[in-house]
Nucleic acid binder design. Sequence first.
DNA 1: TTGAAAGCGCTAACAT
DNA 2: ATGTTAGCGCTTTCAA
Lengths: 336, 336
Amino acid sequence: MRVNLKYIAEKANLSPTTVSLILNGKNVRVSQEKRELVLKIAEKYNYKPSSLARALATKKTNIIGLVIPDITNYFFAETALIIETTLRKYGYSLILCNTADQGNDEHKYIDLLLSYGVDGLIICISHDSLFNNDLLHKLNQLEIACVAFDRFIPDLPFPYVSIDNEYGARIATDYLISNGHRKIGFIGGATNVLSARQRFDGYKKSLEKAGITFNQSYVKHGNYQFESGYVAGKELLETNDVSAVFVANDMMAYGFYKAARELGKKIPDDISVVGFDDLLFSEALDVPLTTIKQSTKELAKYVCDILLKEIKGEKVPRNILLNPTLTVRSSVKRLK
Amino acid sequence: MRVNLKYIAEKANLSPTTVSLILNGKNVRVSQEKRELVLKIAEKYNYKPSSLARALATKKTNIIGLVIPDITNYFFAETALIIETTLRKYGYSLILCNTADQGNDEHKYIDLLLSYGVDGLIICISHDSLFNNDLLHKLNQLEIACVAFDRFIPDLPFPYVSIDNEYGARIATDYLISNGHRKIGFIGGATNVLSARQRFDGYKKSLEKAGITFNQSYVKHGNYQFESGYVAGKELLETNDVSAVFVANDMMAYGFYKAARELGKKIPDDISVVGFDDLLFSEALDVPLTTIKQSTKELAKYVCDILLKEIKGEKVPRNILLNPTLTVRSSVKRLK
DNA sequence: TTGAAAGCGCTAACAT
DNA sequence: ATGTTAGCGCTTTCAA
């Protein structure tokens, strides 16, 4: 049976206040004798305070809401894990919400989290929502600590942490070009996702700088998921003569590998590939994937730092853009 | 500014009771006129009830606690996603706890979840905990709906859903044997994880049935993670002449692929591999992995079904063992 | 058809 | 050094 403060107080012949003080380790008043007594009784009855009641009284839940598009995406899973581990050190728990990139669900999730009185919000907003004024309005009204990450939303009243997508795409494409490739395909994410557009921009800018004419038929768009990389890969390889492809995330790159395999094209001999994310599996592939590395560790670190500062009411930076790096493996062939 | 019931009640010139009734859609008393008025005012002030206060009053939080070892493991991520999606349909949210297979953390997490008054608990207990009597005792005392999954814990007072690990390991090994292999290595999980032991047992039984002598030096143990499969793979391949390996989960199988590649061994020509889990990536590998498929969908479905039934106070089955199946791809060579 | 009052389990301001 | 009281925002019983 779960006992409460009052019960312990009665057993100890003290007031709930005193017991509360003791159990919360407040080093005020209270004789050593009583303190020990209460501790012993609480132990004996296995007393555990109700976080609910405490939260209601203190207006602090020690819960942070995390809203992400897809927990089965390794990038998000890893980020979520690091965020969770970090925040837990500071006494916070996480309520996780998968939006599955459903704009209207996001709305509900955020309301839900707010109704639980979360102390802070970490969100990665799905593309759809960028066009959802209600949501933006709601985010603007937010009265609690909040950090956005990975996907940028313009004009938000709270900080944003991400990597520089355009820069990453540029160095990926630059690398292909520097290896002698000229016919370079692009498989991107959904065009309404900002990060996807930025990567597309980076790709185009790199081509432009090298004086390579942009070819629209070399461009396919997926949705950052495995299957879509496979489908886009098939389309691209069946109808074009590209010698290399920049695939805008690793999940799709894995799908692309499958497409290439099914079409009998060898990587990197027949087709070179550069990905984006550097997920764990990129190293495990038979032809390890050359890719752009986003450091989830660094990302998560900044996100937590900022959130904790916001909660404490400290000053926080406006936006943070992290520079990704190129991880060279074996999926790109040098053309002479 | 967040408004509360009382505020709405004042604006409507009604009592909090009436407003509460209306806003909760209780179809009792209350004139149509007042109802509409209250609804309009609530809308106007964007009233959102405090789940905290409601939970405190009703003793129902609509939160389910999910305790898993590792969210970056695709198997758990996928299961978590399906569970979350399913439960949300029924009005529940999830608090996620990653134990990172730390036995003592599990303890804390469960206490934490209980202190938030979760309505139910879904747990996948880490190995360490099997020897933690405190935890087992705590689980035995649990007064809320609970379901364990994936990893079995004997003598628990609530249902358990898993796949039949021994059976899966048996058909995996059988398959290698039926392809002419006799020197079959085994890379397993930590020996204190029951599922790992069961898979090991299945492997041994399959060998025995085929009249193949068990060879201890063909056996290595990892921890179900990528890196450990790589390390175990190196050890195994450097010191033994196995023609095939059964790797007890796909993550480690990916690590094994890397080891084989580094040692210049081709899969399946030089070494055949069967995995366990059938993660998404198994299909994406350059040599698609033949593996044992656990249906996360089915698993999650049973877990949710049972939990919801428990919450409603309905009768639930004791234990459920799901039969995995073999997914044949290209990582096994037929020896003549 | 509606409201008053109590209470969920805790904390915090204010007394003593 | 300790206790009283009020209150967090809701639901629910009971009364009107």
